[in-house]
Every structure is written in structure tokens, then in C-alpha cells.
């Protein structure tokens, strides 16, 4: 059954410390670390929106954003 995507991943690279927790515990291997040892998305299409990356991240560096509400807000997110 085709899944309708309701969320997208928002990364705050500048807050990421490269601990690898989100990468290791992602059940569908969506995430990886880049050459600077910071969070990057490998394949967002595999994301099952389980939130475990966001919940376990010690650094507020990763978040699932609601696409519907983001459209309504006009996509204004970003680290202050």
C-alpha cells in the first residue's frame, strides 16, 4: 500500500554533534553522517515517520515537520 507522506525531515546541521544516535536507531536507514560528521538525509522516501530520531536526538538537531501545517505557515522554520 502506498503511503502518503505527511511529514518531512528538518535538520539543524549547526546543532548536530555527530553522535550517530539517530543514524543507528533509525529502523529504515534514512539518515547518515556527512564528511563533516554531521547529520544528513540518505533517502527520505524510506522514512516511516516514527519520530525515534527526533525523540532520541540529544541536540534538537532533527525534527519531523508537518507538511500540511508547514504549507499553511509558509515554511518559516530555521534555527534562531
Amino acid at each position: 500500500m502506498a503511503r502518503v507522506k505527511k511529514k518531512r525531515l528538518l535538520l539543524r546541521r549547526e546543532w548536530c554533534k555527530g553522535c550517530n544516535i539517530c543514524v543507528a536507531f533509525c529502523p529504515t536507514h534514512v539518515l547518515g553522517l556527512d564528511e563533516e560528521n554531521r547529520i544528513q538525509i540518505l533517502d527520505e522516501s524510506r522514512c516511516i515517520e516514527c519520530y525515534l530520531c527526533e525523540w532520541r536526538c540529544p541536540d534538537f538537531a532533527i525534527e519531523l515537520v508537518d507538511l500540511a501545517s508547514e504549507e499553511a505557515d509558509g515554511a518559516k522554520e530555521g534555527a534562531a
Binding site: 549547526e14 553522535c19 550517530n20 525523540w55 536526538c57 540529544p58 541536540d59 534538537f60
Partner: peptide
């Protein structure tokens, strides 16, 4: 004040 002072991988942030 972010990123915080805790070490990479410290559970306190979680």
C-alpha cells in the same frame, strides 16, 4: 544558547 555544552552523545540532551 544552543548548541548546548554537553558532549556529543551525552544523554542529558535527550
Amino acid at each position: 544558547f544552543l548548541p548546548h555544552i554537553w558532549c556529543p552523545g551525552c544523554g542529558h540532551g535527550t
